[in-house]
Design a protein around this nucleic acid. Structure first.
Lengths: 232, 232
DNA sequence: CCTTCTTAGTTGCAAAATTCAACTAAGCAC
DNA sequence: GTGCTTAGTTGAATTTTGCAACTAAGAAGG
């Protein structure tokens, strides 16, 4: 082994975001052990080299062990590393962002978590507040030009539900016409039962969600699609 | 210490990009030691916990030790981690992107490097080809809506030089009018000697670069500014 | 000093994209 | 049927964009 290779603390953290009470909120738990014992913190853990082929696998395992669920969306956020962030010494945390509908999370053992507004965070362990701020910034940024917010909803959703999701992420309302044209959606053009075109941002299903008014067509997301950057 | 904490290999890599021969190229060197001895690889190294306060410090030190220079731009790209990327075992490489004008790099001991087109890479050690592809994608993406390409030029540059830089990054030409209006530049409006407005994307100097035709005003970049996403 | 050449910088207009208010559609309650 | 609510569309005013044609400034050469 290389003589200069130092002993470093390496862990994987997950910023699990969900829409709750009309706001973008992060899932936090209380640390059972020092350092920062009893402090609110992100879910995280050490890599199990035998078990985890990648850091993303570690992130998935940590969430599975805590809640029993798979996140609908998961990506690496970045690595928060340095001498100052952990009292035990130089450390690196490979941070991830995960998105889930809050309903799905609650059904799956999400009671272990406390939820806090990403814009009104309490005192947190390590640099976890900074990680959450970076995650919220990433999500808001990508939301302005992609279908990322779809992963905060159940698999099928109406266009109005999706619009509310975008509005809650940004904290401001959007005109209905603008929203729909930005997505390039013309419901009439879509042939529901048929195979989705690769170019389709959303896929029309043949299902409708009927309330006590005109029923709205249900959609599901095709893939993570990009459109023109906007301020909404 | 935590009982589950495994022994992992952690290193810092730098994708140092520069414009050379009209193309976006990456700086590579030949590995002196196994694994991948003699293979082309990115500059990189281990963290020195006593010396480096952050992973970015490690990246700067690695470049300084190789070439004696500070990169004009440096940001974290992401962490490439897993069981498969290093034959010695589970490893994590905190990867960075650095930008420099090729001239400055050459003057500063850049002879240690071989330069290769990011779109025509030779066989590389580890997952370094993947890191370079990710870095090029990041740079091209940010170039489409920010002043990132300014860091590939000397501190002062003409608008035409900057336009050529954008064109070389994307490999396609741009109309002069479109380029200037996208940057929001009206040279006449700028008061050179005075303090730059915070809103200014570029700062006009009172210097001109005269060839054998009308001299062009020299600019320097104010800060990393964003503008509307475009396809150029 | 006048013409020509080259590159810098500007202008204005045609074309394209965006926005939003007003419209139609579809269901339920009564 | 009427009235209410939400879904979905349309089209015209406005804004933005792209580009060709214009002016500006210096050098070279007669």
């Amino acid at each position: 082994m290389h003589p200069n290779r130092p002993a470093l603390i390496v862990s994987v953290d997950v910023v699990l975001l969900t829409l709750r009470q009309g706001k973008l909120q992060a899932a936090l738990h209380r640390r059972a052990r020092p350092p920062f014992q009893g402090c609110l913190a992100l879910p995280g853990g050490y890599v199990h080299p035998q078990e985890d082929a990648t850091a993303e696998d570690t992130a998935r395992r940590v969430l599975r062990e805590k809640t029993g669920v798979e996140p609908r969306y998961l990506e690496q956020l970045g690595t928060f590393a340095g001498a100052a962030r952990d009292p035990r010494g130089w450390s690196a945390a490979i941070s991830h962002v995960a998105l889930m509908p809050h309903e799905e999370l609650r059904q799956a053992g999400g009671e272990v978590f406390h939820f806090y507004d990403v814009d009104q965070l309490p005192e947190l362990a390590f640099d976890h507040a900074e990680q959450i701020r970076a995650a919220a910034e990433r999500v808001r940024n990508k939301a302005s030009y992609s279908t990322l917010p779809c992963w905060l909803l159940p698999e099928q959703f109406t266009l109005t539900q999706l619009q509310r999701t975008y509005e809650q992420i940004f904290g401001e309302t959007v005109s209905r016409g603008t929203f729909r044209s930005r997505l390039g959606i013309k419901v009439g053009d879509m042939s529901p039962g048929e195979a989705a075109d690769q170019a389709d941002i959303l896929i029309a299903t043949d299902q409708f969600q009927g309330g006590s008014q005109r029923p709205a067509r249900l959609f599901r997301v095709n893939r993570l699609s990009l459109f023109k950057r906007a301020s909404w």
